[in-house]
Computed example of a mutant assay.
Amino acid sequence: MRASVLLEKGVVEMQERPVPRPEPGEVLVRVRAVGVCGSDVHYYKEGRIGDFVVEEPLILGHEVSGVVAGVGAGVPAERIGQRVAIEPQRPCRTCRQCTTGHLNLCPQMKFYATPPIDGAFADYVTAPAEFAFPIPDSMSDNAGALLEPFSVGMWATGKAGLAPGSTVLISGAGPIGALASLAARSYGATRIVVSDPIASRREKILEFGATETVDPLASDFDPARIGADAFIECSGATPALLAGLQALRPFGTAVMVGLGAEEMPIPVQHIMNNEITLTGIFRYVDTWPKVIAAAESPDVDLDALVTAEFPLEEAEAALTQEPGEDSMKTIVVVSR
């Protein structure tokens, strides 16, 4: 099979690799579409993310849709030909985190495109059968690939404790901010405020669930006037986090999603005096049924998030393109 392989920082090569064989309980998936994540770009440019270091050739890509092409022992043959979206996690299932329902925090986790585990910029991948989720015929391959980042937005929204009638502030009108907005709407939030300094992004985000937008750099911007029940930080910018904490009502919840600085100053007394909950997320748990259902809603158009496509042979170009103000998600098209 073809595979786009990151040899080292800044060096990608197309290679021929053996088609993987599904183990018992696994499926072999013919990849159709793979979303390009910021983590893929970071590995390409920097060769590492925190403690995860590219020390040997690595196939990038973890936002995947495709078609089941084969099955391992114990998996019904009827699954062959089924269109699926893949949850790219492989937890150990036996550690305390897994057995208590926190499999996303499994210390033995194997995750696509996280060193040393290969990802999906290739013709075929294998996955646990229960993590290859059937998608409806009405859903495009691109939309199926975007269920993975949609899961991030859905997990963040769930941790924010949104309920029908809630007000939520989301900082960052990029892809994750857009998907968090859609997730917030699925949870019943009625006021979804998105903050972003770029006017074109503020305008675009209104197509993805936001009910209003604010410019955090405007001279008259006062976050305290928002009175949000929850705040979801998707930009990774320290000023955005600090403003969002001020936007919360007492007893509100702030969820950090964007990857920012390793250390940030926070207003401890404000958090304590208002009993604000400040937490973060790391991937997700059991989100695929939710995002598949949410994506079938008539007011959710995941395809509208796609602003660029590249064939597998041009995966490096997908990683190195200069995003414009209106850029959202890039897809590597592996097959159709």
Score class of each variant (00 low, 15 high):
residue 85 A to D: 09
residue 235 S to C: 07
residue 153 G to V: 07
residue 166 S to K: 02
residue 299 D to N: 15
residue 251 F to V: 15
residue 44 Y to S: 04
residue 325 E to H: 12
residue 267 P to H: 03
residue 40 D to Y: 12
residue 21 R to I: 11
residue 261 A to C: 04
residue 167 T to D: 02
residue 86 I to W: 03
residue 237 A to I: 00
residue 59 I to V: 15
residue 275 E to C: 05
residue 145 A to P: 00
residue 21 R to P: 00
residue 51 D to Q: 12
residue 312 L to V: 06
residue 330 T to H: 06
residue 105 L to E: 13
residue 303 D to V: 02
residue 40 D to I: 15
residue 83 R to K: 05
residue 293 A to Y: 04
residue 202 R to H: 01
residue 307 T to D: 03
residue 326 D to L: 08
residue 156 A to G: 11
residue 37 C to T: 13
residue 283 R to W: 06
residue 184 A to Y: 11
residue 64 V to R: 05
residue 5 V to C: 07
residue 17 R to N: 02
residue 31 V to K: 04
residue 191 R to W: 04
residue 286 D to S: 15
residue 232 I to Y: 06
residue 140 S to M: 03
residue 280 G to N: 04
residue 322 E to H: 13
residue 298 P to G: 02
residue 120 A to Y: 11
residue 2 R to W: 08
residue 38 G to M: 10
residue 55 E to C: 02
residue 149 P to G: 06
residue 125 V to M: 10
residue 145 A to R: 05
residue 136 P to F: 12
residue 176 I to M: 03
residue 159 K to L: 13
residue 230 A to T: 03
residue 270 H to L: 08
residue 255 V to D: 05
residue 60 L to N: 10
residue 90 R to I: 15
residue 301 D to Q: 06
residue 142 N to C: 14
residue 272 M to V: 15
residue 288 W to G: 07
residue 295 A to K: 05
residue 259 L to V: 14
residue 175 P to E: 06
residue 90 R to E: 12
residue 201 R to V: 10
residue 235 S to A: 14
residue 336 R to W: 09
residue 88 P to G: 03
residue 77 A to R: 12
residue 19 V to I: 14
residue 174 G to D: 03
residue 70 G to A: 10
residue 324 G to Q: 09
residue 61 G to W: 11
residue 156 A to F: 03
residue 97 Q to Y: 14
residue 75 V to M: 01
residue 229 D to H: 09
residue 191 R to N: 08
residue 246 Q to C: 04
residue 118 D to T: 08
residue 167 T to A: 03
residue 44 Y to W: 14
residue 185 R to K: 15
residue 209 G to M: 07
residue 190 T to E: 15
residue 71 V to L: 00
residue 84 V to Q: 00
residue 119 G to E: 07
residue 315 A to N: 14
residue 187 Y to A: 10
residue 285 V to T: 14
residue 248 L to H: 04
residue 168 V to K: 11
residue 265 P to V: 05
residue 148 E to I: 14
residue 134 P to T: 03
residue 173 A to H: 03
residue 52 F to W: 13
residue 221 F to M: 06
residue 156 A to C: 09
residue 177 G to Q: 13
residue 246 Q to A: 14
residue 21 R to K: 13
residue 3 A to M: 06
residue 174 G to C: 10
residue 194 V to L: 09
residue 3 A to P: 00
residue 310 F to A: 04
residue 278 L to H: 04
residue 74 G to P: 00
residue 300 V to K: 06
residue 119 G to H: 09
residue 112 Y to R: 11
residue 312 L to Y: 12
residue 265 P to M: 12
residue 41 V to R: 12
residue 93 R to V: 08
residue 73 A to R: 15
residue 275 E to H: 09
residue 116 P to H: 00
residue 161 G to C: 04
residue 319 L to M: 02
residue 131 F to G: 00
residue 303 D to T: 04
residue 158 G to F: 11
residue 247 A to D: 05
residue 151 S to L: 10
residue 124 Y to H: 15
residue 74 G to Q: 01
residue 304 A to Y: 00
residue 164 P to S: 07
residue 275 E to N: 12
residue 55 E to G: 14
residue 302 L to F: 01
residue 165 G to V: 02
residue 15 Q to I: 03
residue 16 E to P: 03
residue 134 P to G: 02
residue 187 Y to D: 01
residue 251 F to Q: 11
residue 150 F to I: 09
residue 157 T to P: 01
residue 82 Q to R: 12
residue 233 E to F: 01
